[in-house]
Structure formats: structure tokens, C-alpha cells
């Protein structure tokens, strides 16, 4: 079976806002020829239950991700900058690190 003859459908990443107050969350992917069919497929697949509010589909090849080789410079912020965390500093009161203002 020659898949090219069928026009192998593109991959789309699916993002769902499952309910109010939540950001869209990546839930998986579907295969579809175009955005309309991708949305329909995503609806059928990821919203069969619950009360979902909104659905996004994004072509998988349109998602740009940080290259693994660049990971260290990209993601090293937390390691060398302990002063970004409250625990780096003394607590405000006697109750210790869980003191009122630290919560």
C-alpha cells in the first residue's frame, strides 16, 4: 500500500482547555489533512466527556522546540541563581521558613 498515493495526513498537536480557569494543555496528537478535519478529529477524540471549553490544533511541524544540544544554556537559569528562590533568604519571622509572609 503506497501511503503517498493516499496523501499521508499531517500530524497535529492537540491542546485542550478542559475547564474554566485552566490553560490549554497538550493532550496528544491527531492525523488530518487540514485544520478543519484536524479540529473535528481532535473533538471526536479528546472531548467525548467532561465539559471542555476550547480546543486548539497546531501542525506538529510548526512547533519549534529548543534543541537538545542547547539545553544547558537554555535551561540552566535555576541552577546558578539560587537567589531567585525565597529559601535563599532568612525567614521573616520566628515561625521559620513556613512563616506567614513566606506562604
Amino acid at each position: 500500500m503506497n501511503r503517498n498515493d493516499e496523501g499521508a495526513p499531517a500530524s497535529w498537536e492537540v491542546f485542550l482547555r478542559a475547564r474554566r480557569g485552566l490553560a490549554h494543555q497538550h493532550v496528544g496528537s491527531v492525523r488530518a489533512a487540514g485544520p478543519d478535519t484536524a479540529l473535528a478529529a481532535a473533538r471526536d477524540l479528546y472531548t467525548r466527556r467532561g465539559d471542555p471549553l476550547s480546543l486548539w490544533v497546531v501542525r506538529s511541524d510548526a512547533v519549534h522546540a529548543a534543541s537538545p544540544d542547547e539545553r544547558d544554556p537554555y535551561f540552566s537559569g535555576a541552577r546558578h541563581k539560587p537567589y531567585r528562590y525565597p529559601e535563599h533568604f532568612p525567614p521573616l519571622n520566628d515561625k521559620g521558613p513556613e512563616g506567614d509572609h513566606d506562604q
Binding site: 499531517a10 506538529s60 511541524d61 512547533v63 522546540a65
Partner: peptide
Amino acid sequence: MNARPAVGD
């Protein structure tokens, strides 16, 4: 065409 961003093969 079907490139996926998160594939780590």
C-alpha cells in the same frame, strides 16, 4: 511533511 517536534529517536 510529518515531522514531529518532540521525537527523540
